[in-house]
Write a protein that binds this DNA or RNA. Sequence first.
DNA 1: GCCAACGTTGGC
DNA 2: GCCAACGTTGGC
Length: 137
Amino acid sequence: MNYWLMKSEPYEFSIDDLKRVTTEPWSGVRNYLARNYLRQMAVGDKAFFYHSSCEEPGIVGIMTIAKAAYPDATAGLEAERWSSVDVRFEQKFSRAITLTELKKHAELANFTLLQRGNRLSIMPVSTEQWTFINGLA
DNA sequence: GCCAACGTTGGC
DNA sequence: GCCAACGTTGGC
């Protein structure tokens, strides 16, 4: 099983939205590296839900991959080029683990999310990073 | 609203 | 295939 982090702007789709609908297609990814990560996901993989472009960017909960990659219908004629997965709500943290807080921990110095200039909306998380961040929640 | 970073596009 | 221009992301 692998671990991931997936970003969403809460104004568009938040952890509370996911909790309400339980399962949702994660679509609209239009970056090849992020798409390749989507295609590597397997049912049962876990992912952090990250709120971006908002007052308090940070990790707000956990979801499970419920369906492996399939063509992204929101890409229209290019659906075959892009991919979606289905995600299922698992847990909302009692508090957000903010980006500011994540930056304070030396254990996360190599975390992709914190790398300068990183803009990927989907990225892998190591087992060590996953365990450490869970311990902060 | 600004700006750094970086991916994509398109002319050559 | 190079590279300048442009667009997007996302934190601040």
